[in-house]
Structure formats: structure tokens, C-alpha cells
């Protein structure tokens, strides 16, 4: 398929109304998954602030499970029928979940001293935003509470929370784990922009913030993360 002959609008063949209704139908259809996802997010939030033993891996394993759920259930079974790239998004989400589980939930992180060397500043704020504030942004667009996007079952807060978690650790493969969440932030921002959703800049701004926090120590000559 000649992807270069298609524009961004071609990849989003639905209206804003249909997109919002998708989340309403999805939340009802998979209930109580949104509540379970949110509970997992809160668990990740509290365990992420601990730095000892298996608890270190808990937020990443929980988040990895959420990526797989969102990829398989939301992207492939709910989103893809509306827009064919959803299949590829779904595969990307599942891959991200597997990568996180393998890289941060298995051996390599154990005994890795730098893995526990965490900075809770910007990462914690991004995580808090993704869990508590980002879902409420939907209300600004006039969406009902049962159509809000929450961590663990919807892609945007899950991706954003993951970036927050990744900022809270140092790991040699952090760059690898950042690729898909960052890419999704840009894809989602573009989708919301095409749909004229007023909150579209949130996800692209998260990319800027994330890369800024990563790059700042090199730019400034200071090692803020150490």
C-alpha cells in the first residue's frame, strides 16, 4: 500500500462525536475494566515511590499488563474497526507491554544499581497528571463521566503515565521503552488535532517535557537525574 499517497486526514475516518462515543461504549462494554485499570494505576503510583525488592518492579509489571490490554482489547477490537491503522497501533501496544515486562520486570533490573536510582520530580508529576487530571480533561470537551479515558484501559493516560514512570528510573534501555509511548503521544495529538478537540496539545507537550527532562542534564552540564 502506498502510504505516502495518504494524508493524515485519510487515517482518521471518523468524527469527533464517533471518537467520543467510542470511549463511552468501550467503558460500558468492558466494565469494570476501567475501575480495575485505575486501581492498578494507583497501585503503580504508590509502589513507584518505593525502591526496594520486588516492589520496584510492580509498577512496571502492572503498566505492562495495561499496555497489553489496551493494545489487544481497545486498539484491535474497538478502535481498529473504525480505523485500519488501529491494528498496527494494537500490535505496537502489545509489543510495548512485552518489552516493559521483559526489560523492567525480569532479570536485567535485578541487581542493577542504577535501576533504583530514581528521581521522583517530573516523572511523579506526569504520573499524577495522567492518573488524576488527564481523564478529567474530557469533561472540558463536554464528554460524560462514563466516557472519560482512564489509565489502564485507555491509551492516552496509559502512555503518559508510562513516560512518568520511565522518568523515575535510570536504566540503559529506557530509550527503547520510550519509543512507543512517545510515538503514541504524537499520534494521539495528531488525531485530536484533526478532530478539533481543544485539548489536543496535551500529548505532544508531554513529549516535549519528557525529552526536555532527559536532555536537560546534557544541555545544562548538570546531571539533574543523578
Amino acid at each position: 500500500m502506498d502510504l505516502l499517497s495518504y494524508s493524515l486526514v485519510d487515517l482518521i475516518p471518523f468524527s469527533r462525536e464517533t471518537y467520543f462515543r467510542l470511549f463511552e461504549r468501550y467503558n460500558i462494554g468492558v466494565w469494570p475494566a476501567p475501575i480495575i485499570g485505575l486501581a492498578m494505576g494507583l497501585t503503580a503510583l504508590f509502589t513507584a515511590r518505593r525502591a526496594d525488592g520486588w516492589v520496584l518492579r510492580a509498577p512496571f509489571l502492572l503498566t505492562a499488563a495495561c499496555w497489553i490490554w489496551v493494545g489487544w482489547v481497545f486498539q484491535i477490537h474497538w478502535y481498529a474497526p473504525l480505523s485500519w491503522p488501529g491494528i498496527y497501533f494494537g500490535m505496537g501496544f502489545v509489543l510495548q507491554g512485552v518489552l516493559m515486562a521483559v526489560v523492567l520486570g525480569w532479570g536485567p533490573i535485578l541487581g542493577s544499581p542504577e535501576a533504583t536510582d530514581r528521581n521522583h520530580g517530573p516523572g511523579l508529576w506526569i504520573l499524577l497528571f495522567a492518573l488524576a487530571l488527564q481523564p478529567l480533561l474530557g469533561l472540558l470537551s463536554g464528554r460524560p463521566w462514563y466516557g472519560l479515558e482512564v489509565f489502564g484501559s485507555a491509551p492516552d493516560p496509559t502512555a503518559l503515565a508510562t513516560l512518568g514512570l520511565l522518568l523515575m528510573i535510570r536504566h540503559p534501555l529506557r530509550w527503547l521503552l520510550s519509543i512507543i509511548p512517545l510515538a503514541w503521544c504524537l499520534i494521539s495529538g495528531a488525531t485530536l488535532w484533526v478532530l478539533s478537540v481543544p485539548t489536543w496539545p496535551v500529548m505532544p507537550l508531554a513529549v516535549v517535557l519528557y525529552l526536555g527532562v532527559i536532555v536537560w542534564p546534557w544541555v545544562s552540564g548538570r546531571s539533574q537525574l543523578e
Binding site: 475516518p13 471518523f14 462525536e17 464517533t18 461504549r25 473504525l82
Partner: peptide, 13 residues
């Protein structure tokens, strides 16, 4: 039917 009829299984739509 571009966009306007792509409403999935939404019974209301």
C-alpha cells in the same frame, strides 16, 4: 459515507 457512516456498532448513531 466517508466519516459520516463510520460509527461502528453504536446503536444510537
Amino acid at each position: 459515507t466517508w466519516i459520516s457512516f463510520n460509527v461502528g456498532g453504536d446503536p444510537v448513531a
